[in-house]
Design a protein around this nucleic acid. Structure first.
Length: 113
DNA sequence: GCAATGACGCTCT
DNA sequence: CAGAGCGCCATTG
């Protein structure tokens, strides 16, 4: 469980996700870049998938570049993510998209804190 | 050890 | 403007 077992690469992603402040959302590409793998958004998603649903990480703050919730293996998990984001004050539009311009990490996010 | 997949992103048509 | 395909690295079987 040693995070080592998951490889340092995953740890990087987990650490970045953990740094996401409340009321904000980050994209896979954003995290991938902060983790030190620009363009490797797939690994970010894969890393999160490897996590347990009971993870302490705010994985629900991680969405795709379109500001939308990614295609999760289980539709129930997707609804949970949306619910958690709404609980943080994040609003979704009819397309289940989040306004990255408003909630995007390091954008207006720091101002909200 | 080898091969295929993967909660995405970007470019091309 | 919209839709589809390909590519990156790492993990898993």
């Amino acid at each position: 469980m040693n995070r080592n077992s998951r490889s340092l690469t995953y740890i990087r992603i987990y650490e970045v996700v953990r740094r996401i402040p409340r009321g904000c959302v980050a994209t896979y590409g954003q995290i991938a870049r902060l983790a030190g793998m620009p363009g490797q958004a797939r690994l970010v998603g894969y890393a999160l998938h490897s996590l347990s649903e009971t993870t302490d990480l705010p994985w629900h703050r991680v969405i795709n570049a379109g500001g939308k919730i990614s295609r999760l293996p289980d539709p129930d998990t997707t609804l949970t993510q949306r619910f958690l984001l709404e609980s943080e004050g994040i609003t979704f539009n009819d397309k289940a998209q989040v306004n990255l311009e408003q909630y995007g990490w390091k954008e207006a996010c720091a101002d909200r804190t």
